[in-house]
Write a protein that binds this DNA or RNA. Structure first.
Lengths: 200, 200
DNA sequence: ATCATACAGTTGACACTGTCATCTGAGACG
DNA sequence: CGTCTCAGATGACAGTGTCAACTGTATGAT
């Protein structure tokens, strides 16, 4: 570091380094690779240091999931509020953002959709972040279907796209078995919901 | 045991006891509770005994998943071949069978939809079991949609219902947030697909 | 400028895990 | 009856999450 930091700043930097290190280990080696010793080493500290910033390992992982959910919400928000986009296009982009996480960071994706564990405060933060991301999706769907049965269609879309992504990530959607890509499934689903919402 | 067994029979019984013990521990305490020592103890044997029947812990877990998938296929098969049922009813029952596992044995459900790990032979057996279960669903959907776009609709149904179940299991589908039950979502989905398959 | 304090991070220890090499004892078979 | 085979027991080892005790340094009061 060029500008040396106050103690609080330095501690915050360590906390960030721990989160980044853990996230990197998760991405590259899966949950098995995320050991407090490895996290500490990669963050330039020792195995016990994380306990100064997180109550336990579960809370560290849950915090990573919460941050990823916040990031997702941050990515979707500008799409939702963009006045130059049609609702259908907004939805397509929002869903693509979700599926991209699944493909590029499968382990992180799993973490994001697993019930959070660890310290109650951390768990509550993760739930809040998840709610925010869900809220963004719901608002876009509401725009799309015009307020009619918003929750039902939003829930159906989100759960279905999650299922598609999750099964693809776990290798249960192999191209040569189903002769269908995840994108085709999503677009089929969206067009069906679109038709259903307009029609009767 | 009343009838004392030959050595081979006794070994087979131990293997079964190990699988049952592990499955019970998984159901009641989640993956964390499934330790080889606990499994051995519950099966009346010591911590090293499982290695006489399974190459490693992953293979033991994967075998449990494979058996669950076989059981699911065994449950769906008679439904599929029942000549007195309509295709729509068959589908409803098959999907209900899947969701019931998610609700009654959430940890087992997770295991069934996670990419299998462990000994190649065991993994391959699990994949085969999964394919059989998927085949049962696909056959029912084929019956329902009349051969038109079978794979597409079957894949969409299976992935969506999995997503619904998975999110419900992980607490991301709370009633007071979405105002929708999993059943409503599934029936909406099925009726949409039904309409789509008949219509244009 | 000096000193006491708070606190980030280190270190040693503990119970627990999966795994393997080795050993033991009882069923299988000549 | 004697030999062999193999299911299971046992001892050991490296690696894990976790905590209590310790250390050193930036902070803030005097």
């Amino acid at each position: 570091m060029i500008g040396m930091a106050s103690r609080a700043e330095s501690a915050a930097a360590t906390r960030r380094a721990l989160l980044d290190a853990a996230a990197e280990l998760l991405d590259s080696g899966g949950p098995e690779a995320v050991t407090l010793r490895a996290v500490g080493a990669r963050a330039g500290v020792t195995r016990g240091a994380p306990y100064g910033h997180f109550p336990d390992k579960d809370s560290l992982l849950t915090t990573i999931a919460a941050e990823a959910l916040e990031r997702l919400a941050d990515d979707v928000e500008p799409v939702r509020t963009d006045p130059r986009m049609l609702a259908a296009e907004k939805l397509q982009r929002a869903l693509a953002a979700l599926m991209t996480i699944g493909r590029r960071q499968p382990h992180l994706y799993r973490l994001m959709f697993t019930s959070p564990v660890g310290d109650p405060a951390v768990v509550s933060a993760a739930v809040k972040a998840g709610d925010r991301a869900q809220g963004e999706f719901m608002a876009i769907v509401d725009d799309l279907v015009g307020g009619q049965d918003t929750r039902r269609f939003a829930a159906l879309l989100l759960t279905s796209v999650h299922g598609i992504t999750d099964m693809e990530v776990n290798g249960h959607l192999s191209e040569d078995k189903w002769h269908v890509t995840a994108e085709e499934l999503v677009s089929t689903l969206v067009s069906m919901i679109d038709r259903q919402a307009r029609g009767g």
